[in-house]
């Protein structure tokens, strides 16, 4: 297969004025390089989802032709789409990075966490994440969060401080001036870094097209057995059981996000390649999270509350 970044010595002619994707890419590379330049032990969150795949691609570009010098961390809910896990492992091998896994299942098995009554495990990821940060003494954690995803994320700095408890204080954030990032912190504190802050879902897809970035196949239309619940199409299996009167059927769907399989919904779609997905996203009337995440419907400030506790 082709390497993600080709030989730069094949010199091209002049380039036109930087466009939106060039600007977003350059900003992301700049952020990643600042963190690598100023911090000792960064780590990048990596789930195999599209935003984290794009972020890892950017990291590889930022440091090319040197390898990505930091490990990646997957906070594993145990409720995985099998093809996403496979993709995660192949990508880790492809980029030659070290993978750490913080497993929610381990925490459930030994009683450090209890299963929630609604079955979703997304909120349970915070504790294993914070423990992994402490254990490995990570001082910077790259996340693929985008400000357009959620109203609490919209308030986040690009380099965002977490106190020694891993907590975010949205009422007392540092000013962030120009592109001069302050990555300093006191002992025990760490920073969360969001290189994709200013990207929208559509920008991410256009960039995937431009760069020819591979994704898990479930981001494209495929036939799948699904059950409709609260307006969401869930995939029955180990974590989604058919209830009384519920019936599943085979539909043509794709996923807009991947997460805990028990609460991440598919959308009806016939978009089977990247261009078709771009057209679909450009015309959508519902947000990514609104369409696919049952847990974000929990309450008005569900994301803010989780983020304050240290969620990504």
């Amino acid at each position: 297969m082709t390497t993600p970044v080709q030989d730069p010595h094949a010199v091209d002619t002049a380039r036109r004025h930087p466009d939106l994707l060039d600007a977003l890419e350059s900003e992301a590379l700049h952020i990643i390089r600042e963190v690598v330049g100023e911090l000792e032990r960064p780590v990048m969150l990596f789930s195999g989802g599209k935003d984290s795949v794009v972020m890892l691609h950017l990291a590889a570009k930022a440091l090319w032709p040197a390898p990505v010098p930091f490990p990646v961390l997957h906070v594993d809910t145990g409720h995985n789409f099998p093809e996403v896990l496979q993709f995660r492992d192949a990508a880790v091998e492809h980029y030659g990075v070290q993978l750490y896994v913080a497993s929610v299942q381990d925490y459930l098995d030994d009683g450090r966490l209890q299963e929630r009554s609604d079955g979703t495990r997304n909120p349970l990821q915070t504790l294993p994440l914070l423990d992994a940060i402490e254990e490995h003494r990570f001082d910077a954690v790259f996340g693929g969060g985008r400000r357009d995803e959620d109203k609490a994320r919209a308030k986040e700095r690009i380099v965002s401080l977490r106190n020694s408890f891993g907590h975010w204080d949205p009422k007392n954030q540092r000013p962030e001036l120009w592109d001069l990032y302050n990555t300093r912190r006191r002992p025990g504190e760490h920073v969360r870094v969001f290189p994709l802050s200013n990207w929208t879902e559509l920008d991410v897809w256009r960039y995937i097209a431009r760069e020819g970035i591979a994704l898990p196949t479930l981001y494209y239309a495929h036939e799948r057995e699904v059950v409709e619940r609260d307006g969401m199409l869930l995939s029955p299996g180990d974590w989604v059981h058919l209830g009384e009167g519920e019936e599943s059927s085979v539909r043509t769907v794709r996923y807009r996000t991947v997460g805990d399989m028990s609460c991440t919904g598919a959308v009806a779609s016939t978009a089977c390649d990247v261009e078709a997905v771009i057209a679909e996203v450009a015309a959508t009337t519902v947000t990514e999270r609104g369409a696919t995440r049952a847990d974000d419907r929990l309450s008005e400030a569900a994301m803010e509350d989780r983020k304050k506790e240290g969620y990504f």
């Binding site: 297969m1 082709t2 390497t3 091209d12 002619t13 002049a14 380039r15 036109r16 466009d19 994707l21 060039d22 795949v53 390898p67 990505v68 993709f87 192949a90 990508a91 880790v92 091998e93 492809h94 980029y95 030659g96 990075v97 070290q98 993978l99 256009r206 995937i208 097209a209 431009r210 760069e211 020819g212 970035i213 591979a214 994704l215 494209y220 390649d273 990247v274 261009e275």
Partner: peptide, 29 residues
């Protein structure tokens, strides 16, 4: 790095054609 040192043949395949910087120097797509 402790991961595989070389690009693998089983890694994620690229989707679709590559639309990068075209030969005339203008971004394609």
């Amino acid at each position: 790095q402790t991961g595989a040192g070389t690009a693998s043949t089983t890694g994620p395949a690229r989707t679709g054609p590559t639309t990068g910087t075209a030969t005339d120097g203008t971004a394609a797509g």
